[in-house]
Structures are given as structure tokens and as C-alpha cells.
């Protein structure tokens, strides 16, 4: 088959685009396969590590630790420990976002999601609600303290 120059150019740029996007798609699929516990998923049978129950409500976050204590708008973690957050909501849809750990997980009424992560550096980080939830949406934020 003989192609004229114009068609050749078209074929070349389509192939280039497809190649780049295939690389992106494959790396994305690999990440999903190897890190499926690090993205938001419905609660599974055996959460890893220390389990923290998170409840979002208008307009604050409550974190319940395994020993039963509850802290509001402040999450205290230990460096090097694996944590699984089990996230739900009391009222509207919220979204817990901790940029430092790549945690981004919806809190939905009547539906629990989980996400696993492991802090590797001590420090104080931020978390925020990033799903619009009413008047004081912007105040649904706080700090993560890793010791």
C-alpha cells in the first residue's frame, strides 16, 4: 500500500499519540494492580494495619482510634506504621484529602470506603474536605501530626 505524504504525516502523529497514551495507560494499570489498597475502594474483608474509623459531618472530621478515643479535626499517627482509614459520613457527601499521603477518599452516608497508607516522615501536614458540603465547607480541615 502506498500512502501519500499527507496521509503519512497523519498516520505518524496518530501513532505517536497512541504510543504515548498507551504508555500512560499501561503505567496506570500497573499502578492499579500493585497499589489497589492505596486508592479509595469499598471496605474489603481484611483491612491492613491500624484501623482508624473516620466520620465526616457538617462541618468537621472525627477520627476514632482502635483504643476508642476520638479526635476532631486532628489526626495523630506514628511514623512507619501502616494505617487503614475507614471513611463514612453522617450527612452529605464529603471527601477527605491528605495531599502528603495521596489520600483522597469520599465519605458517603450509608457507604464506607477504605484506603491504606504509611507515613514515612515525621511532621505536621494538612488535610481538607474537597467535596462541597455546605456553608462551612472550607472549615472542614485540620492537621495530621506524624510523630
Amino acid at each position: 500500500m502506498k500512502l501519500d505524504n499527507r496521509t503519512k504525516a497523519e498516520v505518524i502523529w496518530v501513532i505517536a499519540v497512541v504510543a504515548i497514551l498507551s504508555w500512560a495507560a499501561v503505567s496506570n494499570a500497573t499502578y492499579l494492580q500493585t497499589h489497589s489498597e492505596n486508592i479509595a475502594n469499598p471496605v474489603g474483608p481484611d483491612p491492613q494495619g491500624v484501623i482508624i474509623n473516620v466520620t465526616g459531618y457538617q462541618w468537621a472530621w472525627a477520627f476514632q482510634y482502635p483504643n476508642g478515643t476520638i479526635s476532631t479535626d486532628k489526626l495523630v499517627l506514628t511514623n512507619g506504621t501502616t494505617y487503614t482509614l475507614i471513611v463514612s459520613s453522617k450527612d452529605v457527601i464529603h471527601d477527605l484529602y491528605i495531599p502528603e499521603f495521596g489520600v483522597n477518599i469520599y465519605a458517603v452516608y450509608g457507604h464506607t470506603n477504605q484506603i491504606t497508607f504509611k507515613p514515612t516522615k515525621a511532621g505536621i501536614y494538612l488535610f481538607e474536605c474537597v467535596e462541597y458540603c455546605g456553608e462551612f465547607h472550607y472549615e472542614m480541615r485540620g492537621t495530621v501530626v506524624v510523630t
Binding site: V14, V17, L21, A25, A40, I105, V108, N113
Partner: peptide, 29 residues
């Protein structure tokens, strides 16, 4: 993605999101 669709649906939708960039790129070129 973060609402708990599950890994399989995440994979499907992210792959279609990559594919939809192809016709856009065709137009740009």
C-alpha cells in the same frame, strides 16, 4: 474515582479517559 467505584471500574474509566485524548489530539494536529 475516589467514591469507591472499585479498582476494576477505575481501570475501565481511566483507560477510556486516555483513549478519548486520541481524537482530540487528531484535531489539534
Amino acid at each position: 474515582f475516589n467514591s469507591g467505584l472499585g479498582t476494576v471500574w477505575d481501570l475501565i474509566f481511566s483507560t477510556t479517559s486516555f483513549i478519548v485524548a486520541i481524537p482530540s489530539a487528531m484535531s489539534v494536529f
